[in-house]
Structure formats: C-alpha cells, structure tokens
C-alpha cells in the first residue's frame, strides 16, 4: 500500500511544478466560463425556466463545470500510460512489483488532488466574484458534493485508462483519444448543460458514464430532482456504479492486454 502513497505524492509533486501554467489554466477556465455564462444568461432571460434550471443554476453549472475540468481531466492530460504503450516503456511498468491500474490511479489521484486545490477552487471563486452563484446550504450537501467530485475523478480515470489500453490493440491511441475527448465534452454537459438538450437526447446522455463527469456532480451541487432517482443519493449511486464498472472493465482488459505485450530485448 505504501508504494501507492508514494506514487500519489509523485503525481501531486509533478503537477505542482508548473506554477505559471496553473495560473494560466485558472485564467483560461474563467474566461471560457464568462463566455458561456453570458450566453446562458441571455437564454434564461428569454426563457426563465428550462427543465428545472433558472439563470442562477445555469451560471453555477458553468462554473462548477469549469472547476471540474482540471480534476476530471475531461480535455486531458491523458495518462502517460498511453504514450508508454506506444513507445514500449509499458514493459517496464509491467515488471514493477505493483499492479498497473492501481499504480496509474494513484498517480492520477495525485494530479487530481493538486487540480482541486489550485485549479478548481480559484476558478470557482473567480466565478463567484463575477456572477451570483448558488451554493449548497448545509454541511451535508457540501459533503455530498465532495463525494460526487471524488466519484467524478474516478470515472474520469476509468475512461482515460480505457483509452490508454486501446493502444495495446491499435498501437497508437491518439486517434481514439481525440474522438473520445470531443464526445466527452458534448455528452458530459461541459459544452452546454444537458438540460438544454432536446429531451430524448438528454435522457440518453444521462444514462452514459460521461454524465457522471459534469452533469451529475453539478446537479448534486445544486440538489436537483432531475438526478437519477430524483435525489442526491441516486446521483451518487449512478456515479459509483459507473466508476465501478469502468474500473472493473479496465482490470479485465489489463490482463488481456498484458498477454499481447511483446518485449523486444537486446
């Protein structure tokens, strides 16, 4: 177990090295947030209520989504594992006295932990300074939001781990990853809240794992009855189920993939 804590610390330290990049990321997330927020304010000025959202909910959605970009890594960075599969360095990873998936999970959790503190919190705070945002009213709901964030990070890892594993079959996972990133932005509610989508499409996307990255955490934060089961617990259960399914699939495919590795030695 200690080894995974060490890897976690590595991930944390690695991303803490790029201070200017972190500040630049917060700035960019805030600018994108402001653009989306202004569009949505115009929409809600024309139609004050859409599927349970009002203007304040929509702007809160935008900034929670911008705050989640870094920890759930919806637009990247991808796991280093993908590049290591392409170059063959993954052979070294497989020789380590640690399992592949937990190793990279620990590393990614380190990255996410750094992201929450230095990307999510400042981005959301800037949003709150610019626009009136809705905040959870009591400590229980804050705890639920925190749990939802952790589950979103796990789903984010589960998806990116699968993209990286695709490299074992395709040799180059970049094409798959590029398509997946675009799908994720759309299907998660990051580009636009799913409440604005046509209802049948929204219903479909709400059943897929990407909803667990942004839309469900936002609705847990806002305590919306559009969550699966109509309450926060249902939303958390939805996320937990997808996280478990993705991690299980990842573990299953890791065993398959490891058998495909051919190590050329010299």
């Amino acid at each position: 177990m200690r080894i995974y804590f060490a890897v976690f610390a590595c991930g944390l330290r690695r991303y803490s090295g790029y201070r200017a990049a972190t500040a630049a990321g917060v700035f960019t997330n805030s600018v994108f947030g402001a653009i989306s927020a202004l569009v949505l304010l115009a929409v809600f000025a024309a139609r004050p209520h859409i599927n349970g959202y009002d203007a304040a909910d929509a702007v809160t959605h935008v900034y929670v989504a911008q705050a989640l970009i870094a920890p759930v890594a919806i637009m990247g960075p991808q796991l280093d594992l993908a590049e290591r599969v392409r170059t063959g360095d993954v052979a070294i990873d497989l020789l380590r006295p640690a399992h592949l998936a937990p190793w990279w999970l620990a590393h990614d959790l380190g990255r996410a932990a750094f992201g929450v503190v230095f990307r999510s919190v400042p981005t959301f705070a800037l949003g709150a300074a610019l626009f009136p945002l809705v905040l959870p009213g009591d400590p229980v709901r804050w705890a639920a939001a925190a749990a939802s964030l952790v589950l979103a990070v796990l789903i984010g890892f589960g998806l990116r781990y699968l993209y990286a594993l695709a490299g074992f079959w395709l040799l180059d996972a970049r094409g798959v990853t590029a398509v997946a990133v675009m799908v994720a932005g759309f299907a998660s509610g990051q580009l636009l809240p799913l409440v604005l989508f046509p209802d049948p499409l929204a219903a479909l996307l709400r059943a897929l794992p990407w909803a667990g990255l942004i839309q469900v955490p936002v609705e847990v934060f806002l305590d919306k009855d559009t969550l699966p089961g109509g309450h926060i617990a249902g939303g958390l259960a939805f996320q937990a189920a997808w996280a478990a399914a993705l991690l299980a699939l990842g573990a299953l495919l890791t065993a398959r993939a490891a058998r495909r590795v051919v190590v050329q030695g010299g």
Partner: peptide
C-alpha cells in the same frame, strides 16, 4: 512566460 500556453487559449 514559458508555461503560459493556456493564456493564449483564452
């Protein structure tokens, strides 16, 4: 600013 690629993204 070497790391500031993301600023340009905005």
């Amino acid at each position: 600013v070497l790391d500031a690629r993301e600023v340009a993204n905005s």
